[in-house]
Structures are given as C-alpha cells and as structure tokens.
Amino acid sequence: MAERSTSSKSARSVLLEDFNEIDVYVEDTSVETKKLYTIILNKATNSKYSIESVLPLGNSKSVIDEWKKHKGINDGRKKVFIIDGDFYLINEDINEVINDDKISDLTGLYILPKYCIENFLIDESALISLIHDDDPIQNHSQISENLNFQEWVVENEEQLYNLFILYSIIIKFKLGIQNVQFGVGKLCTDSSGVVCKTKIQNRIDDLKSEITAKISINLEQEIKIRKEKLHLAENKLLKFVSGKDYLFPLLKSRIKSKHKFNPDQASFKIRLAKNCSFNEIQNVFDNIIS
C-alpha cells in the first residue's frame, strides 16, 4: 500500500509538466511544503528553472527509493530528489540508507547541508524584519535587542548539540529509542525559548543508560568521534539540531514572550522564506538527472 501511495504521489509530476521545468521531489508533506519549497528554490537559484510546485513523498526512504527508480531512466524530464541533512550530517552514513553496495554516483540526489529545510529559515535579520512588520511601536534596533538572537543561540547550542549527538548514535545503531520525537517543551522550564540545562542533562543521562542497556558499545568513544569530526563546524545549533521539531518551537516561544506576535506555523515559515537568503543551497540544481 505504501509503495502504491508513493508511486501515486510521484506520478503527479506528469500533471505539473506544463508548470515545472524541473521535477523536484522532497520529503515533508506538511500543508505549507509545496509553497515553502517553491519560494526557497526559486530564490536560491535565482529562478534557474521555472518551478510552480514540488512533489512531497513523505520521508527520506521514499525519496531515495523514487530516485533509484528514475536514476537510469531518460524520459526527457529534468529531476532532482532532495532529502533532509538529518543525522547523515553527523553520522555520514548516507550510503547505508541508499544501498548496501555503496552507490558512488549520487547524480540527482541532493542532501540538504542542514538538518532540514526549516533550519534555513532561522535567520536573525529575517526574524527581526518579520516582527517589525507586526509591531506598531518598536523599531528594528529595539526588536533586535529584545530578541537577542545571538544570546539565544549561545544558550541553546551546547546543550542541544550534545543531545543530538546522542540522537545520532541511536539512529546509527537503529536502537528504537525515542529521539527527535521527544518534545522540546519537556526540556524547558519557562517561555524564554532556552532549554533547561538540568533537564537536558537528565535527558542525556537517561539516554546513555538506555543506549548501553541495548547495545555493547564504547559510548563515550562514539560521542568523541563525532565531536572531533565536527568540532570545526560553525553554527552547530542551526546546522545539526532539527529546525522543525526543536528550534522553531523554541524561537516562537521566545518571540511570544517578548512581542505580541503569534502567527500560525505555516504562515510563519512562508513569511520567513520571503525574507531569507538561501545562498547555501544555490547549487541544488548543479547535479540533476536530465
């Protein structure tokens, strides 16, 4: 049933041929996905190809499976298959997901260089502009001072990065332990948009116990390997922590605590996309199936 459903979603590309110069397949199926991706991809590539919509398939496996089907087919349509950076960015095990035989040619498959598409929307200037549009009193500098975006990043980064390192190990070894689905609200004590250090540490301690109870590994060594590999990476919070599940809820909580501003999730993302720059993914169409 799942396979037929994915195939049905993929077949919709035929209906979009008159509107799209390139077929774009993505994971997320939330209500705003099509519009959000259309805005982002057109901005990122300076409208290199005309894109009116994208094709959401559900998850990375569905996108990868569909990519495999089209990889060797030349039907005259340009195609790109986009998956979230997810924990591939920490574990670097994309080939384990793609194929046990280690496919080396990834033509047409694009892995986002951040955890998910929402991570690209967490931009200080865009946030300040958005709040400014809805605030009849405060100017940009006052909003910037209240939001204190850099402080928010610093106060959350180490805590959440350490937590997501453990999540990546859970995913790597397929341990079946709840990870990103554990709501970030459970890790907070107030509406400041900053996680509680004590709650994070308790969560980390609990996860370490669960992991070592399920599998015999040198857990501290696994943590060390990942941290050494990624220690030079910039903006760890904004790159490796889920924007959709963790950063967006924290940011909305912070904004609500300082401003009378509470847009629904979908419109919040769309409006941010219109104010962001997406230079980091301007190469998304450099290596497509054509």
Rank of each mutant, 00 (worst) to 15 (best):
S242G: 02
I83S: 07
W152A: 05
I165Y: 05
D65E: 09
T212Y: 06
L272D: 06
K61N: 12
L147T: 01
V195I: 05
E66P: 01
V195H: 01
D123G: 09
L250R: 00
P136E: 14
I215W: 07
P113V: 03
E234D: 12
F248R: 10
L247M: 00
D65Q: 05
D86E: 14
S129Y: 00
N91S: 02
Q178L: 00
L16Q: 11
N46G: 11
E280H: 02
D135A: 01
L175N: 03
I223T: 00
K172E: 15
E228F: 00
N279A: 10
I270P: 11
K227Q: 15
I211G: 09
D206H: 09
K244Q: 14
V24D: 04
K34I: 04
T45I: 11
K269S: 12
V26P: 03
P56C: 02
A213G: 09
F278D: 12
D105N: 15
S242F: 01
D123I: 08
T29P: 03
L207V: 04
P263C: 04
D28L: 05
D135V: 02
I64V: 15
N287F: 13
Y246V: 11
L238N: 02
I122Q: 00
I289W: 01
K35T: 13
L147Q: 04
V63G: 01
L250Q: 03
V14P: 06
R203I: 09
Q201D: 10
I73M: 12
R226E: 02
L57F: 00
Y49D: 06
K224M: 06
S192P: 06
T107D: 08
N42E: 08
K224D: 10
Q178W: 00
K224L: 13
Y167D: 05
V31G: 13
S144K: 14
Q150Y: 05
I39D: 00
G85S: 07
T38I: 03
K252V: 08
T33L: 06
D133L: 10
D286V: 14
S267T: 14
K61Q: 14
T189K: 15
Q282D: 13
H70I: 00
L219P: 06
Q178S: 01
S144D: 14
S7H: 10
S267K: 09
K69R: 11
K274A: 13
E234F: 08
K224I: 10
L175E: 07
N59C: 15
A266L: 06
K252Y: 06
E124F: 04
E3T: 07
L175M: 05
K9G: 08
N139C: 15
G72T: 10
K79F: 03
L247I: 04
L272Q: 13
L130N: 03
T45Q: 14
K61W: 09
H231M: 10
L187T: 00
L15T: 08
K239H: 11
